[in-house]
């Protein structure tokens, strides 16, 4: 048995914000009709949070649910629990058209920490990151420079960003470059 490793093995960078790659994180793609109570219950059952509305993200430490589309949810659990969570949801949803896939390893997760975090993301993503427009509790899927990503706020000054594993190094380099001290924009 070997320990699972994340794409960049928890690498960090200190610029005008701190950028950290988080270790392995449990993530499951759950496809199913959100209108069906069994779909909702299967998800809330493993994640331990309330079912999210459109573009909402409810995360408590490593557990949570994020709304991805009308028939897709991101279910988050500790990495080691992902397979069991999939099995549990499949069992709950037996007989209901649905699909639960463990995608924990297909992703890389970063934290961007500090008062400059909004600006770092605003250099890469065509999203209104002003304090009025972007608040904790929302998940935004978009692109960062040339790759699709998703991000949400854990709390003020702390963002989590998810990308595909294969481009983890690229995304880390983007975040590092955007956080080089001296390149603060002074906009927000």
């Amino acid at each position: 048995m070997s320990d699972p490793v994340s794409a960049l093995n928890r690498v960090t960078f200190d610029g005008f914000v701190k950028v950290e790659e988080m270790g392995p994180r449990g993530m499951i793609t759950l496809r199913g009709d959100h209108a069906l109570p069994e779909v909702k219950n299967a998800a809330t059952g493993v994640a331990g949070v309330n079912f999210p509305g459109q573009r909402e993200c409810r995360v408590v430490e490593e557990r949570g649910l994020a709304w991805m589309s009308p028939d897709e949810l991101l279910v988050m659990v500790p990495h080691g629990e992902a397979d069991t969570a999939v099995a549990s949801m499949e069992s709950d949803l037996d007989g209901t058209h649905s699909l639960a896939v463990n995608v924990s390893d297909a992703r890389a997760v970063f934290r961007i920490i500090g008062p400059g975090a909004r600006e770092v993301l605003a250099k890469l993503c065509p999203v209104d990151l002003s304090p009025e427009a972007f608040v904790p509790g929302t998940i935004r899927r978009t692109r960062a420079a040339q790759v699709p990503v998703a991000f949400w706020m854990v709390e003020e000054d702390v963002f989590e960003l998810v990308c595909f594993r294969s481009v983890a190094a690229y995304v880390f380099d983007l975040l590092k470059t955007a956080a080089i001290p001296g390149s603060e924009v002074g906009y927000f």
Binding site: L124, V147, Y170, D173
Partner: peptide
């Protein structure tokens, strides 16, 4: 913008 050198394009590894 930032798209040059290492981040000219997203290399997939």
């Amino acid at each position: 913008g930032e798209a040059r050198g290492e981040v000219f394009q997203p290399l997939r590894r």
